[in-house]
Design a protein around this nucleic acid. Structure first.
Length: 859
RNA sequence: GCGGGCGUGGCGGAAUUGGUAGACGCAACGGACUUAAAAUCCGUUGGGCCUUGUGCCCGUGGGGGUUCGAGUCCCCCCGCCCGCACCA
């Protein structure tokens, strides 16, 4: 027997074994209840990063654990293979996106396989393959038929130098990332999906997603943003306007008497009309368009505006309100126009202070005097009583809202309405590396869907990236076609789909991945779905997960499948972080370039011995160089040690700090298990020896610990508390290592302990577990073994140690039989010397006894 | 700016969900083994105080509150992170 465990040999051996024996290939009709575990599929960047390793370790442990529990587990993998980086590589390195992507996939698949994942590779998919995307072209045509897809104009970031549409990511401080010139906004006609049709349903169904983290549900709720309010018209009284009134939406109709100005979005039709005659307004609008399209950019910009000279009449008071154009009013929300009440809205207040507009408080916080209450630089947005508000005076905010809505409705100037923050999903992208949108533009017939028998519309292969803009649009012949309707010359749509399109249905494709005729067989998908446990990054909390929830409903509406929610359980993991290092010149260094052996204060550069500054712990990123290459880790320590470390310390939902010490510690534990079980101190009993009826106290303790560990480990794995599961496994390994083997039954007890330990460790360290399982004499793999059973009689000890406090401070502990009578427990506790001392000379006022927990004496 | 989250020893974290704060591990220090090193094993390890105990006081980002009892619940503040609709 080797003294040291050699992960490289063992891992390769078992990975080969699993693949050859098809251990993890899933049959639809295999016995056991179905369990679908899914990790968010990766973008094939070419190299695995630690975030991937963490993600797939988590889902893999779930898959292996569920398999051991007897479930028929589906754990597939694929590639989110369309996207910008492939085009960037084409521009920068001249690589063809298809070749670049496929070679990346090959490299990453090999890396994933070296992690020893229990994945059914026979179901692998890549979204850039026409066999995949042809089905989503069909889906889009079905969505068109169902009225779920339509075209409208919307804004894009435009780089005036590169003549290209930019992604938000490509806009840095308002400028194009390559050109460095300020971006402009342009309107383009684009395709949209009617996610807003499902807004109510998507919101209401959040309550049913009990397997989701509350915070994600809350984020989605806020994103959908259902709000009740008042939509009403203000009549224009002065100024040269091509309209008679301004339609606004507000969620704070109660503050109507505090209105001090109206604000129009720079993109409001009225603004556009006014700008034609007024250069000041036109200039302001142009200026506003010199910003990115992202909401964050808009809202973080300094509040600015321009007075239109128009005024409107206050509906209840004899006063005129000035109308401004303001950069913080979003055209996409409500009606694109608001009335501003600076006293009770921070944005309005900032604006009012800047332009010297009046601030009229109308909600009085509790305890304030209406005569003296003023608003300074902070708007008051809390509850209170209305004042300065005529018929609403004395009402609270909720009552006031109802009251004013009723009045406005009666006057015919508006009505109480519901508005959503959620906007329809724009799916058009002016890019090459995406799924072509299957429509044809005909001069006579307009938009004509590509006939289904002509699908897929495949991407042209012979493209060049020498010109800026979308290479498909530049292609000499690709877009030329004949109109399916009238037969005349026509042009193909050159936009491609947003890559969220592909990731909105891949979970269903895995259930029937090789179906050529349809996206999937409905019966298969309905049998496997919903996904029981979805695992991925918190960064997808809103968009990807909301789009997929919508898409699933759209598919249901079109008859593709029969359920609403695609993901029953969701787990969002934290990021992987690492210390950062900078050299004397302030340049970032890779961890592998730094010598930390003399401590963090004396860190030096390996190459020349110069001092290195150890910086903050941050998310691993190429730019900060604080990355650790999974390949190196897997080669040095093996997959099992890497998996163990990833699962060990940090709770999976929190950030994980990658440390050299941590992976070393995991490596030591792998070796410790190997030593302990492969070369036991006491000879083990033969395989299948049953435990003798009477064991000594030491053996009894081991068995008790064993059953408790099985119970706790299972419970923690059920809850995805992997760090705690690992702690229990380690603690039990310590128990076995400390086991004083001098009683009669030791060989049998020790064997039972080892076998249990190996089974518990198997989901975490699968290769080591297989190797040890064989050492213990088993011929069938542990990956097919059942999870150990708990004997409940070992779970409850008959003695409990409880704390005795005096005035909440610990003064003694006493060990009592379980469920000791309250009075007896009190009496025993009172006799403790520490307790006597603490209550000496004081009167006992009360004694609180919580059975099996605590005794607290109040003096 | 808006929405969501996190904060416990030197470090990652645990705490039966309001009941003995620091499980499990990392690092450090001391010791054993060794010609030496590696590996391994044993011990100590939140801070402070002294009368060194079976001791006392302080301690869960900061401040306040509720409670017999608060890391846990409530209010305010600080710091960091994620998302914001064309990165995936």
């Amino acid at each position: 027997m080797d003294e040291r465990y050699n992960p490289r040999e063992a891992e390769e051996k078992w990975q080969k074994f699993w693949a050859e024996q098809k251990i993890f290939e899933t049959r639809d009709d295999a016995p056991g209840e179905k369990y679908y575990v899914l990790a968010m599929f990766p973008y094939p960047s070419g190299r695995l990063h630690m975030g991937h390793v963490r993600n797939y370790t988590l889902s893999d442990v779930v898959a292996r654990y569920r398999k051991a529990l007897g479930y028929n587990v589906l754990n597939p993998m694929g590639w989110d293979a369309f996207g910008l980086p492939a085009e960037n590589a084409a521009i920068e390195a001249g690589a063809h996106p298809r070749k670049w992507t496929h070679s990346n996939i090959d490299a990453m698949r090999a890396q994933l396989q070296s992690m020893g994942l229990a994945i059914d590779w026979s179901r692998e998919i890549a979204t850039c393959d026409p066999e995949y995307y042809k089905h989503e072209q069909k889906m889009f045509l079905d969505f068109m038929k169902a009225g779920l897809a339509y075209q409208k104009e919307s804004w894009v970031n435009w780089d005036p130098v590169e003549n290209t549409v930019l992604a938000n990511e490509q806009v840095v401080d308002g400028c194009g990332w390559r050109s460095g010139v300020p971006v402009e906004r342009r309107k383009l006609t684009q395709w949209f999906l009617k996610i807003t049709d499902f807004a109510d349903e998507l919101l209401d169904a959040l309550d049913t997603l009990e397997g989701w983290p509350d915070r994600v549900r809350l984020m989605q709720e806020n994103w959908i943003g259902k709000s009740r309010g008042l939509q009403m018209r203000f009549h224009i009284t002065q100024g040269d306007a091509p309209a008679e009134h301004i339609e606004i939406f507000t969620t704070r109709p109660d503050t109507l008497f505090g209105a001090s100005f109206m604000a129009l979005s720079p993109d409001h039709p009225l603004t556009t009309a006014l700008a034609e005659k007024d250069k000041k307004i036109a200039d302001f609008v142009t200026e506003c368009h010199r910003q990115g399209t992202s909401e964050a950019a808009l809202e973080q910009a300094e509040k600015r505006g321009v007075d239109t000279g128009l005024t409107v009449k206050h509906p209840f008071e004899d006063r005129e309100i000035p109308v401004w154009v303001a950069n913080f009013v979003l055209m996409d929300y409500g009606t694109g126009a608001i009335f501003a009440c600076p006293a009770h809205d921070q944005r309005d207040l900032d604006f009012a202070r800047k332009y010297g507009l009046s601030v009229i408080p109308v909600v009085l916080p509790e305890g304030e005097d209406p005569a003296t209450f003023t608003v300074g630089d902070e708007a008051y947005t809390g509850e209170g009583t209305l004042f300065n508000s005529d018929f609403m005076n004395g009402l609270d905010v909720a009552e006031a809202k109802k009251s004013v809505i009723a009045r406005i409705e009666k006057s015919g100037d508006g009505e109480g309405t519901v508005t959503w923050r959620l906007r329809d999903w724009g799916v058009s992208r002016q890019r090459y590396w995406g799924c072509p949108i299957p429509v044809i533009h005909c001069k006579d017939c307009g938009i004509v869907p590509v006939p289904e028998d002509q699908l897929p519309v495949t991407l042209p292969e012979d493209i060049t990236f020498d010109k800026p803009g979308n290479p498909i649009a530049h292609h000499p012949t690709w877009k030329n076609c004949t109109c399916p309707s009238c037969g005349k010359d026509a042009e193909r749509e050159t936009d491609t789909f947003d890559t969220f399109f592909e990731s909105s249905w891949y979970y269903a494709r895995y259930c029937d991945p090789h179906n050529e005729n349809a996206a999937f067989d409905r019966a298969k998908v309905d049998a496997w779905c919903p996904v029981d446990q979805y695992v991925g990054g918190i960064e997808h909390a809103v968009m990807h997960l909301l789009y997929a929830r919508f898409f699933n409903r759209a598919l249901k509406k079109c008859g593709y499948l029969g359920f609403d929610e695609p993901f029953k359980g969701l787990f969002t993991q934290g990021m992987v972080t690492h210390e950062t290092y900078k050299d004397e010149k302030g340049k970032y260094l890779f961890p592998s370039e730094v010598d930390l052996s003399k401590g963090r204060e004396k860190a030096v550069k390996l190459s020349d011995g110069t001092l290195v500054k150890v910086g903050r712990i941050e998310k691993m990123s190429k730019s900060k160089k604080n990355v650790v290459d999974p390949n190196e880790i897997l080669e040095t320590y093996g997959a099992d040690a890497a998996r163990l470390f990833i699962l060990s310390d940090s709770p999976p939902e929190r950030d994980l700090e990658w440390t050299e010490g941590g992976i070393e510690g995991a490596w030591r534990f792998v070796q410790k298990l190997w030593r302990m079980i492969s070369a036991p101190q006491t000879a083990l009993a033969a395989k299948d020896t049953s435990l003798p009826g009477n064991t000594d106290a030491a053996a009894q303790e081991v068995l008790e610990a064993m059953h408790k560990t099985v119970h706790q480990t299972g419970q923690e794995l059920d809850r995805l508390h992997f760090n705690k599961a690992v702690a229990h496994i380690r603690a039990f390994a310590n128990t076995l290592a400390d086991y004083d083997t001098s009683g009669k039954a030791d060989g049998a007890v020790l064997r039972r302990g080892f076998e249990t330990l190996v089974k518990l460790a198997a989901p975490v360290m699968p290769h080591l577990a297989e190797e040890l399982w064989r050492v213990l004499g088993h011929e069938t793999p542990v990956s097919l073994a059942a999870w150990p059973k708990v004997d409940k009689k070992y779970l409850v000890s008959d003695q409990v140690t409880i704390a005795v406090q005096v005035n909440g401070k610990l003064r003694a502990t006493v060990t009592l039989p379980r469920d000791t009578d309250k009075k007896i427990a009190e009496d025993i506790a009172m006799k403790e010397p520490g307790v006597k001392k603490a209550i000496d000379g004081k009167t006992v006022r009360k004694v609180i006894v919580v059975p099996n927990r605590i005794v607290n004496v109040v003096v």
